[in-house]
Each structure stands twice: as structure tokens, then as C-alpha cells.
């Protein structure tokens, strides 16, 4: 889980569960229309994500 505390504090937070083939760029493209905005997702999910090139299937990422 990316940030259980934030999730429990804000039930309106938006989440994405990583599936096979996902990259932060693809996720950024899906939610923002612009893959170059992937650092927004990276920053919002630290320290779960240590390397933006390494995300694991099943991770629940917060999408700012």
C-alpha cells in the first residue's frame, strides 16, 4: 500500500492499482493525458516507490 494513513484520512483520494505492463509514464498518460507528468505520481508515492522505473504489480498508487 502506498500510504494507508493518507487513504484512511481522505476517502476521496484517487488510487491506481498497478497491473502488468504499467509504468509511471503510462499511468500519468492515463490520468493526466501527459506521460511527462509521471514525477507527480512518483513524488506522491514515496517512499513506496524508490525508483520511478521500478513499480510492482498490485501496488496501490495514489494519483494526485
Amino acid at each position: 500500500m502506498a500510504d494507508e494513513k493518507t487513504e484512511s484520512e481522505n476517502p476521496y483520494a484517487q488510487w491506481h492499482v498497478v497491473v502488468k505492463g504499467d509504468t509511471l509514464s503510462k499511468i500519468a498518460k492515463k490520468y493526466y493525458g501527459d506521460a511527462s507528468l509521471y514525477p507527480k505520481i512518483f513524488e506522491a508515492n514515496r517512499p513506496l516507490i524508490k525508483d520511478p522505473n521500478l513499480i510492482q504489480i498490485g501496488w496501490k498508487l495514489r494519483i494526485p
Partner: peptide, 15 residues
């Protein structure tokens, strides 16, 4: 606010 801030920086909008 968080989503609007990010989208305001997007060069394209999502589907």
C-alpha cells in the same frame, strides 16, 4: 485542487 494543479501543467488532456 491537486488534480487541477497537475492537469493545468499537462500538454494534452486524458481521454
Amino acid at each position: 485542487k491537486s488534480r487541477l494543479d497537475v492537469l493545468s501543467q499537462a500538454k494534452k488532456l486524458p481521454a
